[in-house]
C-alpha cells in the first residue's frame, strides 16, 4: 500500500475492519490452535501456563492485557514468544517520561526525493505490541496507545490509519517505583480486557527455567506453530460462540454485585469484556457455547482492575470483591 493510494481513497475504517471477511475456524480446530500456541510458549515460559492461556484467550477475545508485576519475571519473554509462535509482527515500546505520542503512533516525514510527506509507521503497527512500563510515560503518550487499543486505529495529522489485525497490546506496569510513574487513569485501565500478575515461579519451576535458559535461550529456537490467518479465523470462531440468556444474566448479576458492594463497580464495558473472554475460554475448551464456569474462570482476571473498592480495609480490594461475588451470586 503506497501513500498515494492512501491519500486518493478516503479511509473508511468501518469497511476495513469488517470481521465478516474471515471464515471462522471450526471450534475443534480453533481449540487445537490455542493448545498448540500455549504449549509452544510454555516451552519458553516456565511455570506460567495459566497466564499464557490467559494471554492467548485475550488475543482470541480481541482484547489487550495488562501485566502488573515486578521486573524480571518474564513479561517481555512471554510477549515475544507468543508473537513468534503465531508468526506475526512483534514490536516493543519502552515507555519513558520523554516518550512522545508520535513515537508510538508514527510520524509524517518529508521525503526529499519525492518532495512528499511519507508516513513512518510507529511501533503500534504490529500484531503484538509490548508496551513496557507504560505508567512511566506522560498521560498524553499513554492515551495515544490507549486510543490505538480501543479503536484499532491511529490518527496522525488528521489522517486515520487502521492497525493490523490481530492487534494485541501487552502492557506492563512498573509497580516498584511509584514516585517515578504516572498512574494510569481508571477509565484507561478499564480498556484492558485482563490484568494479570505472573508472580515469581515456584522453586522447582525456577530451577527448571534456569536449566533451560542458561546458555542457549530457547526462544532462539522457537518455531511458529500457526499463522496470522488462522489466528484471525480463530478469533472469528470466538465471536460466534453462543452466549445464552442465563449466562448473560449471570454476568449481569456479578457486575451488579460489584456495583452494590464497591464505590465503583464493574462498568458495562467490563461486562462485555467478561463475556468476550468467556467466549474465548469456551473455544479453548472446544465448546461453541459459554457456560457459567467460563465466566467464573475469567472473572478474577477480567473484573478486579475495574473495581474501586472504596474501603479503608486494604484487604477488601477488587480481587476480594470479585471472589465474594463469585461465591455469593447464584448460578441459576
Amino acid at each position: 500500500m503506497t501513500d498515494a493510494n492512501t491519500r486518493d481513497r478516503p479511509h473508511d475504517p468501518i469497511q476495513e475492519d469488517r470481521p465478516t471477511a474471515v471464515e471462522p475456524l471450526p471450534t475443534e480446530e480453533a481449540a487445537d490452535l490455542c493448545r498448540a500456541v500455549t504449549d509452544n510458549v510454555a516451552g519458553v515460559i516456565v511455570g506460567h501456563d495459566e497466564a499464557v492461556e490467559h494471554v492467548v484467550t485475550a488475543i482470541l477475545a480481541r482484547g489487550h492485557v495488562l501485566l502488573d508485576d515486578v521486573p524480571g519475571v518474564g513479561k517481555t519473554m512471554l510477549a515475544r514468544s507468543l508473537a513468534r509462535s503465531i508468526d506475526c509482527r512483534f514490536r516493543r515500546v519502552q515507555f519513558t517520561p520523554d516518550l512522545l505520542p508520535s513515537d508510538v503512533t508514527g510520524v509524517n516525514v518529508f521525503n526529499q526525493k519525492t518532495r512528499e510527506f511519507e508516513f513512518q509507521p510507529g511501533p503500534v503497527f504490529a500484531n503484538v505490541v509490548l508496551g513496557d512500563e507504560i505508567n512511566r510515560a506522560p498521560p498524553k503518550t499513554q492515551s495515544a496507545l490507549l486510543e490505538a487499543m480501543e479503536e484499532a486505529q491511529v490518527t496522525v495529522d488528521g489522517e486515520t490509519r487502521a492497525l493490523p489485525r490481530p492487534f494485541t497490546v501487552i502492557a506492563t506496569q512498573n509497580a516498584v517505583e511509584p514516585d517515578r510513574t504516572y498512574e494510569l487513569p481508571f477509565a484507561e485501565v478499564d480498556r484492558f480486557v485482563k490484568k494479570l500478575r505472573l508472580g515469581y515461579p515456584d522453586p522447582d519451576e525456577e530451577s527448571e527455567m534456569l536449566a533451560r535458559t542458561v546458555g542457549h535461550h530457547p526462544i532462539e529456537d522457537l518455531e511458529p506453530v500457526t499463522d496470522l490467518e488462522s489466528v484471525r479465523r480463530a478469533r472469528e470462531t470466538a465471536t460466534r460462540v453462543r452466549v445464552e440468556a442465563p449466562v448473560r444474566e449471570y454476568a449481569t448479576r456479578l457486575a451488579g454485585y460489584t456495583r452494590d458492594h464497591a464505590r465503583l463497580g464493574v462498568s458495562p464495558r467490563g461486562t462485555i469484556s467478561l463475556l468476550r473472554a468467556a467466549q474465548a475460554r469456551a473455544v479453548l475448551s472446544g465448546r461453541d457455547y459459554v457456560i457459567p464456569d467460563d465466566v467464573q474462570y475469567e472473572a478474577p482476571v477480567v473484573l478486579p482492575h475495574r473495581i474501586r473498592a472504596g474501603s479503608d480495609d486494604p484487604e477488601v480490594d477488587g480481587t476480594a470483591i470479585v471472589e465474594r461475588a463469585l461465591e455469593r451470586v447464584a448460578v441459576e
Binding site: 457456560i291 467464573q296 451470586v329 447464584a330 448460578v331
Partner: peptide
Amino acid sequence: REAGESTRQ
C-alpha cells in the same frame, strides 16, 4: 448446590 457454584462444578 452452593450459591456461586455452577452446575458443572
